[in-house]
């Protein structure tokens, strides 16, 4: 880790690669979640597979957690270094004149997403760990859809999720497109890449918000 943070360009690359990895994760997470709206049976099957497949549980899950940790720890290191590089603050600094709000506030949008991850882990991951390893309950491949829908019954949780997805969208708006520049990609294809990255930044969080609102509005009635 110390070698990685020695050079400013290596630090950029670490942020870009860990960010892109999280973008790939978000995509597969969204695809599986979306089945909870259109095909509850499939959602149950895939959730059960993700929860009990040893490769997913003991290889992919630790890699994912490492990706998240590296991304936010490096984000904090960069922020601290960048703050100190200014030295004396400007009395008047017109940041909005030359850079987007999203690009200037990555630390804040990132912090909200990180806080959301805490809630999200508490809601689903901690519950799963308790189910499997503490309470040691029997495998039940049919429970996931009902459990997920039930989570979104309280309006406060649905709202917290939706607000977090808005902040995630703002974070991705700058972050996804910017990761290509950090990797040195700036050529004739860049305008198209930027456009696709920005569409992704809107569509995926919007989709996650839709799923949360859909489940809030369509509770399971027995």
């Amino acid at each position: 880790m110390s070698g990685l943070i020695k050079s400013s360009i290596a630090r950029k690359l670490v942020m870009a690669l860990s960010g892109l990895f999280l973008v790939v994760f978000l995509t597969q997470h969204f695809v599986i979640n979306f089945t909870s709206v259109i095909a509850p049976e499939t959602f149950n099957q895939w959730s059960h597979f993700m929860g009990y497949n040893p490769l997913v549980q003991f290889v992919l899950q630790p890699i994912l957690i490492a990706g998240v940790v590296i991304h936010f720890v490096m984000g904090f290191i960069l922020e601290a270094q960048n703050k100190s590089a200014r030295g004396v603050s400007y009395v008047k600094y017109n940041g909005g004149a030359n850079a987007s709000w999203m690009s200037r506030n990555m630390i804040y949008t990132g912090l909200v997403v990180l806080a959301f991850l805490g809630l999200h882990f508490y809601d689903f991951w901690v519950h799963e760990m308790a189910y499997k390893y503490v309470e040691v309950k029997a495998e039940d491949p049919t429970r996931y859809h009902a459990e997920t829908v039930e989570k979104f019954a309280p309006i406060w949780r649905t709202l917290l999720y939706v607000v977090s997805f808005v902040l995630l969208s703002l974070h991705l708006w700058h972050g996804f497109a910017s990761s290509f520049q950090s990797m040195g990609v700036n050529n004739k294809y860049s305008p198209v890449i930027q456009k696709i990255a920005k569409i992704f930044a809107v569509v995926i969080p919007l989709g996650f918000a839709f799923i949360a609102i859909y489940h809030h509005l369509n509770p399971i009635t027995h």
């Binding site: 020695k6 050079s7 400013s8 630090r11 960069l78 960048n82 100190s84 200014r86 987007s100 690009s103």
Partner: peptide, 14 residues
Amino acid sequence: MDLEGFGNCTNTGA
């Protein structure tokens, strides 16, 4: 550049 204490680029484009 790093030794001089300049900050890291975050691609804001300013």
